[in-house]
Simulated scan of single mutants.
Amino acid sequence: MTIETVRSFLGWCSVINMGLLLYWFLFIIFAHDWVCRVHGKWFNIPADKFDAIHYAGIMYFKLAIFVFNIIPYFALCIVG
């Protein structure tokens, strides 16, 4: 496996993961009440905790994208 292959793989993983993150963010912004109502029924979560849980989830997912995809991609761009 070459550096170019790994770099390409990490680049596409970054694009796909950022797309999922954007989808999650837009879904929470535009369908907040519906998602909160559904999750409230399933898990008995109040609205304020729902917002905190999703905010923390989005933050951790974004951090994981940077740590495991974007930073190694740029490191391989510098090396290769």
Rank of each mutant, 00 (worst) to 15 (best):
L10Q: 01
W34Q: 14
L22A: 15
E4I: 07
G11K: 06
N44H: 14
F27D: 12
L26R: 05
G80S: 15
I71Y: 12
D33M: 08
W12S: 04
K41D: 13
V15C: 01
R37L: 12
A64D: 05
K49F: 10
F74R: 02
F61H: 07
E4K: 05
I53L: 09
Y73V: 06
M1C: 03
P46F: 04
C77S: 13
W34I: 10
C77G: 12
T5R: 07
W12E: 07
I28P: 00
P46T: 06
I53M: 08
A47R: 15
Y73M: 13
M59A: 12
F68E: 04
T2P: 08
L20K: 06
N17C: 10
I58W: 01
R7A: 14
W12N: 04
A56T: 03
L20D: 04
F50T: 03
I3M: 08
Y60H: 02
Y60K: 05
Y55C: 00
C36P: 00
G80M: 08
V15W: 02
L10S: 00
L76V: 13
F66G: 06
H54L: 03
Y60G: 04
F25K: 06
F74A: 08
F9P: 00
I16A: 14
L76D: 05
D33W: 08
V67F: 09
F66D: 06
C77N: 14
F25E: 07
G11S: 03
R7G: 08
H54Q: 02
W12F: 09
K41Q: 13
M59K: 03
I71W: 11
V79L: 14
V79A: 13
F30P: 07
I16M: 04
C36T: 14
S8R: 08
A56N: 09
E4A: 12
G57E: 05
L63P: 00
I70S: 06
C77D: 05
A31D: 15
P72L: 06
Y55F: 11
R7K: 15
L22P: 01
K41A: 13
D33G: 15
I3A: 08
L63I: 10
I58E: 08
F25W: 11
A47E: 15
Y60I: 14
V38C: 10
G11Q: 03
M1R: 05
V67M: 10
M18E: 04
F66E: 09
E4H: 03
I53P: 00
F43Y: 15
L21D: 01
W34K: 13
N69A: 10
R7Q: 09
I3S: 04
G19V: 02
M18R: 05
F61A: 10
Y23G: 06
Y73E: 12
V35Q: 09
T2W: 02
G40K: 10
V79I: 15
D51F: 06
A31Q: 09
N69L: 13
F61M: 11
E4W: 03
I58V: 04
S14H: 00
L10M: 00
W12G: 00
H39M: 15
W34Y: 13
C36H: 06
E4N: 05
N44I: 13
Y55R: 04
I65L: 10
A75N: 11
W42F: 14
I53W: 01
G19H: 01
F43N: 11
F27N: 14
H54P: 01
L20R: 09
P46E: 11
A47H: 06
N44Y: 10
